[in-house]
Design a protein around this nucleic acid. Structure first.
Lengths: 220, 220
DNA sequence: CTTAAAAATTAGGCAAGACTAATAAATTAT
DNA sequence: ATAATTTATTAGTCTTGCCTAATTTTTAAG
């Protein structure tokens, strides 16, 4: 099993992410926009990836990952998300700092690394942005990410991520003592200004604004 | 503060390691042997590193790291050794598996990473090979290590590190069941070939070669 | 001191992966 | 359907970091 270059891995990952829905045609231009590079470079790389049987390419159907290519991409995503959990939970980084580091860590090559890391972290299901972490066999939990604003009164949810990563928002959350994993119960929604009253931790009731509720991602 | 390429970092690290004693002249050939590449490549890179003011080079005095270059090298070594501790203690890797992974991890770029990792690991002083972990300010614990080869017959010592970290050597140690902390008693030295017979653990007597004894670092 | 051997350097190339500019093909709009 | 526009592709360069072969410089030996 030959190994990929860093660049090849990044292409596979981007193609995988662009394929989210599975319907849209993945074109060289789309890839070049995602990678912030030149379409001509993409065409070159597609040829290389086709040679290596990591993708298929037909002008009419666009780029498709082969099983082999998809497996590699999933492993990279798996590593990325596991490392994000590590950076946040173990090293104490903030939500907005971990992505760039995980972007580097995801390329560390060692056949056992992802599995060992996963075990060490206690088999987390979601990363700190609320995205599901693929399992060793490639399976993925479904992403239930919703905005707090969409939770119905009476229901509870668990904070998985923030949409706005500005430090003013993060500091506000810290002050409230809301973090990843905090369980929030929605008590009431006020139609007038779309604010909501919520309960969490030791706080029995607090009112948060519409903007607040639209920037907190939760799992039901 | 501009960042280094992977290759540049590897050169700085190798030059730093070659400078251990501080006396020997560091030549392009020595570097090429350490990196397992061609002297011509080394000459190219030296020019580049001189331009970046990371090393100085005079034919008569050889290659010297500048303060800037040395600081970068020390940080790489620091990261390498911290990651080794992580891999061994947290992820449960074996002694001989960690080097190659740390070799990749040492290049992860983030200004806070080493410090956070160090705190997470509880400020370890030595890595799993017994080598001191440089502190954030560049200071290093002193290495009190001696070679097994220098231990007099009749005396005992404790393994603290290996000099050769090749996996062939580490695997040999594993097979013998020698690891960090193993107590070894030197029974005899054979002047003919500088081999020595030693006792350790349940092994009452085994003969090891000169090369072996010169690659095992111990504490009397 | 002169010669042989070793080390350093230069010159010229190569592969990866990016770029620009030019051209061809496919879409979209008229 | 044809023109206009957008997309894809090709050709030719560039940089990084490596290589080989040839040459020069240094060191070591006789």
């Amino acid at each position: 099993m030959q190994t990929q270059t860093l660049s090849e891995e990044n292409y596979l990952k981007v193609i995988y992410h662009l394929d989210k829905d599975g319907l849209k045609k993945i074109t060289p231009t789309a890839i070049s926009e995602a990678l912030n590079n030149n379409p001509a470079s993409v065409v070159d790389m597609i040829k290389k990836l086709v040679d290596k049987k990591l993708v298929q390419y037909e002008k009419s159907k666009g780029v498709k990952l082969t099983d082999k290519g998809r497996n590699i991409a999933i492993l990279i995503v798996r590593k990325h998300r596991l490392w994000e959990v590590f950076l946040l939970e173990k090293l104490g980084y903030e939500w907005d700092e971990i992505h760039d580091i995980a972007e580097q860590l995801e390329h560390i090559q060692n056949s056992e690394l992802a599995d060992r890391l996963e075990r060490f972290l206690g088999f987390p299901q979601y990363d700190p942005h609320g995205d599901p972490i693929p399992k060793a066999n490639g399976e993925q939990a479904i992403s239930y990410k919703t905005l707090l604003a969409e939770i119905a009164p009476g229901k509870s949810c668990k904070v998985v991520a923030v949409k706005d990563t500005s430090s003013s928002f993060l500091q506000y959350l810290k002050k409230l003592d809301i973090g990843i994993g905090t369980k929030i119960t929605v008590l009431d929604k006020i139609p007038f200004d779309n604010s909501m009253s919520i309960a969490f931790g030791k706080t029995e009731s607090t009112t948060v604004s519409k903007i607040f509720a639209e920037n907190l991602l939760v799992h039901e």
